[in-house]
Simulated assay, not measured.
Amino acid sequence: MSAYLLRSVRGTPYWMAPEVISDSGYGRKSDIWSVGCTVFEMATGKPPLASMHRVAAMFYIGAHRGLMPALPARFSSAAAEFVHAYQHERPSALQLLDHPFVKGGQ
């Protein structure tokens, strides 16, 4: 199923993956991006780029292709690495379930 890429823009700007914003086709990796944004929001109380207007956040995400804020230093290295992974590596859901942040509860 990973060969199927959808091409309609759907989602809420703060949680939209760069490929969704650029309308270049998206799939499961886009959902991984959104999971990472949700973890960021759960940790900080706000989604990444919450200080920006929604449209500005969309332009930023589209232009910077994954350059998003890191978790503040007060969070564990496992949590910070988990959030970093969604932005850069986009591991599968199975790989994320095996991540130390999920397995260790840190």
Score class of each variant (00 low, 15 high):
Ser92Met: 05
Pro91Asp: 05
Val35Met: 15
Arg65Val: 07
His53Tyr: 06
Leu49Glu: 00
Ala3Gln: 11
Pro18Val: 08
Pro100Asp: 13
Ile61Trp: 00
Met68Pro: 00
Lys103Gly: 07
Ala50His: 02
Tyr86Cys: 15
Met52Gln: 05
Leu94Gly: 06
Val55Lys: 08
His88Leu: 11
Gly45Val: 09
Phe59Arg: 04
Ala79Pro: 03
Phe101His: 09
Gly104His: 11
Ser76Gly: 15
Ile32Glu: 01
Ala50Cys: 07
His84Ile: 00
His84Phe: 06
Pro69Thr: 12
Ser51Ile: 03
Arg74Cys: 10
Gly11Leu: 02
Arg54Cys: 01
Ser76Val: 03
Gly66Trp: 08
Glu41Ser: 12
Ala17His: 02
Glu41Cys: 10
Ala73Gln: 13
Gly36Trp: 02
Ala50Ile: 01
Phe40Gln: 04
Thr38Asp: 05
Val55Glu: 01
His88Lys: 15
Arg74Ala: 13
Leu71Pro: 10
Leu96Gln: 12
Ser30Asp: 07
Gln95Ser: 13
Ala43Thr: 06
Phe101Trp: 15
Glu89Asn: 04
Leu71Val: 09
Gly27Thr: 02
Gly27Val: 02
Arg28Gly: 14
Met1Thr: 12
Ala93Leu: 12
Lys103Met: 13
Arg10Asp: 03
Phe101Tyr: 15
Asp31Val: 07
Asp23Ile: 08
Leu71Ala: 07
His99Lys: 13
Pro48Gln: 06
Lys46His: 10
Ala57Glu: 00
Tyr14Trp: 12
Met58Val: 00
Ala43Pro: 13
Ser22Ile: 11
Glu89Met: 05
Pro72Asn: 09
Ala56Ile: 01
Met16Cys: 08
Thr38Met: 15
Glu19His: 08
Phe40Trp: 10
Thr12Lys: 06
Trp15Met: 12
Leu67Arg: 15
Met42Lys: 07
Lys46Ala: 07
Ser22Phe: 02
His84Lys: 11
Pro13Glu: 02
Val55Gly: 03
Ser77Trp: 02
Gly45Ala: 06
Pro91Met: 14
